[in-house]
Simulated assay, not measured.
Amino acid sequence: MNFFVTQHIVIHSLKIDGISNSSVCQIGSAGIIKPVSKLYNTGGFTEPAPQLGPLPTTGSEEFVPLIPLVSPSRLR
């Protein structure tokens, strides 16, 4: 038995709160989804990563990213 689906999807906003190695986000119809999760040591590491030190803090409750972020440029 064959199903033919014609669809029109408009997404104005999509918020994803979390993602992991085996996350699947499906919009619309799919016959079969075969999720695959593979973990590779692409850096050739041979020992565990060092322990995380103390997190950076400020005098206020301001969020401090662990990775330095660049301010977005203005649109012209």
Rank of each mutant, 00 (worst) to 15 (best):
M1Q: 05
N2D: 06
F4P: 08
F4L: 14
V5S: 14
T6L: 09
T6Y: 15
T6M: 14
Q7E: 15
H8G: 15
I9L: 14
I9W: 07
I9N: 15
I9E: 07
H12I: 01
H12R: 07
S13E: 02
L14Q: 02
K15M: 05
I16V: 08
D17T: 02
D17S: 02
I19S: 05
I19K: 09
S20D: 01
S22R: 00
S23R: 00
S23H: 09
I27Y: 00
I27D: 04
G28D: 03
G28T: 03
S29D: 13
A30P: 09
G31T: 01
I32E: 08
I32P: 05
I32W: 07
I32Y: 08
I33C: 11
I33T: 11
I33R: 03
P35V: 07
V36Y: 11
S37C: 08
K38H: 12
Y40F: 14
N41C: 15
T42Y: 14
G43H: 10
P48D: 13
A49S: 12
A49V: 09
Q51A: 10
G53H: 10
P54R: 04
P54F: 01
P56A: 05
T57C: 14
E61N: 07
F63G: 11
F63H: 06
P65M: 09
L66D: 12
P68H: 09
L69I: 06
L69M: 12
V70L: 15
S73H: 01
